[in-house]
C-alpha cells in the first residue's frame, strides 16, 4: 500500500519542476506549460488527500481548478498571440515595455 506522503512527495517534485521552469525558461509558452505542471501537482495533492480521507470535496476543488486552468490558458494564449503579432517575439525578456 502506497502511503499518502508518497503522493505528496510526487506532487512536491512536480511543483518544484514547474517553479524551476518558470524561473529559467524565457519562452512565454514554455512558462505556460510549467504553470500547467504546477496546477497538476496541486491537483494531485488534492486528489490524494480526498482519496485517503474518504471525502469527495477535494475532488470538487480539483474540478474548479480545472475550470480556472482552462480559462487561464485560453486568455493567456490569446494575449501571447496578440503580443507576437505586434512584436514578433514571445521571449519575455524582449517584452519589457511596461517594465519600469
Amino acid at each position: 500500500m502506497i502511503p499518502l506522503s508518497w503522493y505528496l512527495f510526487l506532487s512536491l517534485i512536480l511543483f518544484t519542476i514547474g517553479v524551476l521552469g518558470v524561473l529559467i525558461r524565457r519562452n512565454a509558452i514554455v512558462i505556460f506549460m510549467c504553470i500547467e505542471l504546477m496546477l497538476n501537482s496541486v491537483n494531485l495533492a488534492l486528489v490524494g488527500f480526498s482519496s485517503y480521507i474518504g471525502n469527495e470535496i477535494g475532488q470538487m476543488l480539483v474540478f474548479f481548478v480545472l475550470v480556472v486552468a482552462a480559462a487561464e490558458v485560453s486568455v493567456g494564449l490569446a494575449i501571447i498571440i496578440a503580443i507576437f503579432r505586434n512584436r514578433l517575439t514571445v521571449n519575455i525578456d524582449e517584452i519589457n515595455l511596461l517594465k519600469w
Partner: peptide
Amino acid sequence: YVGGILVLIIFGVMLT
C-alpha cells in the same frame, strides 16, 4: 488537459 489545453498550447506554439 489532453484534449483541450494541450491542443491549445500546441496551436499557440505553431502560431507564434
